Computed example of a mutant assay.
Amino acid sequence: MSKQLNSKFIVIEGLEGAGKSSAISLVRDFIEKHTGAVPVCTREPGGTPLAERIRDLVKIADETDPLCDEAECLLFYAARAQLVANVIKPALRRGEWVLGDRHNLSSLAYQGGGRGLSTLVESVSRATLGDFKPDLTIYLDIEPKLGLTRAANRGELDRIEVEEIAFFERARHTFLSYAQQDDSIQVIDAGQTMAEVHKDIVALLQAQDW
Results as ranks from 00 to 15, higher is better:
residue 125 S to T: 09
residue 100 G to S: 15
residue 121 V to C: 07
residue 150 R to V: 04
residue 87 V to S: 10
residue 145 K to T: 12
residue 83 L to I: 09
residue 102 R to K: 07
residue 140 L to T: 02
residue 96 E to Q: 14
residue 140 L to V: 06
residue 132 F to I: 05
residue 132 F to S: 04
residue 82 Q to E: 15
residue 135 D to W: 03
residue 143 E to P: 06
residue 141 D to E: 15
residue 123 S to N: 13
residue 149 T to C: 01
residue 108 L to P: 01
residue 135 D to C: 09
residue 106 S to Q: 00
residue 107 S to W: 03
residue 99 L to C: 07
residue 112 G to E: 11
residue 92 L to K: 00
residue 86 N to P: 00
residue 104 N to S: 14
residue 102 R to N: 08
residue 143 E to I: 13
residue 134 P to R: 07
residue 118 S to A: 11
residue 154 R to H: 12
residue 107 S to V: 10
residue 134 P to S: 14
residue 135 D to Q: 04
residue 145 K to W: 09
residue 151 A to R: 10
residue 144 P to N: 07
residue 91 A to V: 04
residue 100 G to K: 02
residue 152 A to W: 01
residue 91 A to E: 10
residue 122 E to L: 01
residue 114 G to A: 06
residue 150 R to K: 03
residue 111 Q to L: 08
residue 105 L to V: 02
residue 94 R to Y: 04
residue 136 L to M: 07
residue 124 V to T: 12
residue 111 Q to C: 12
residue 119 T to C: 06
residue 97 W to M: 15
residue 98 V to K: 09
residue 146 L to F: 04
residue 146 L to C: 01
residue 85 A to V: 01
residue 112 G to D: 08
residue 149 T to R: 03
residue 144 P to Q: 08
residue 155 G to D: 08
residue 147 G to N: 11
residue 90 P to S: 09
residue 99 L to I: 07
residue 155 G to M: 12
residue 149 T to G: 07
residue 111 Q to I: 06
residue 110 Y to H: 11
residue 153 N to I: 03
residue 104 N to L: 10
residue 115 R to T: 11
residue 84 V to W: 11
residue 125 S to C: 06
residue 153 N to Q: 15
residue 118 S to R: 04
residue 106 S to R: 00
residue 143 E to Q: 14
residue 155 G to S: 04
residue 101 D to N: 14
residue 87 V to I: 14
residue 122 E to T: 04
residue 141 D to T: 02
residue 100 G to T: 06
residue 115 R to E: 12
residue 99 L to A: 02
residue 94 R to F: 03
residue 86 N to W: 00
residue 125 S to L: 02
residue 131 D to F: 03
residue 100 G to Y: 07
residue 113 G to S: 06
residue 98 V to Y: 10
residue 143 E to T: 14
residue 152 A to M: 07
residue 138 I to D: 14
residue 149 T to L: 12
residue 93 R to N: 11
residue 134 P to M: 09
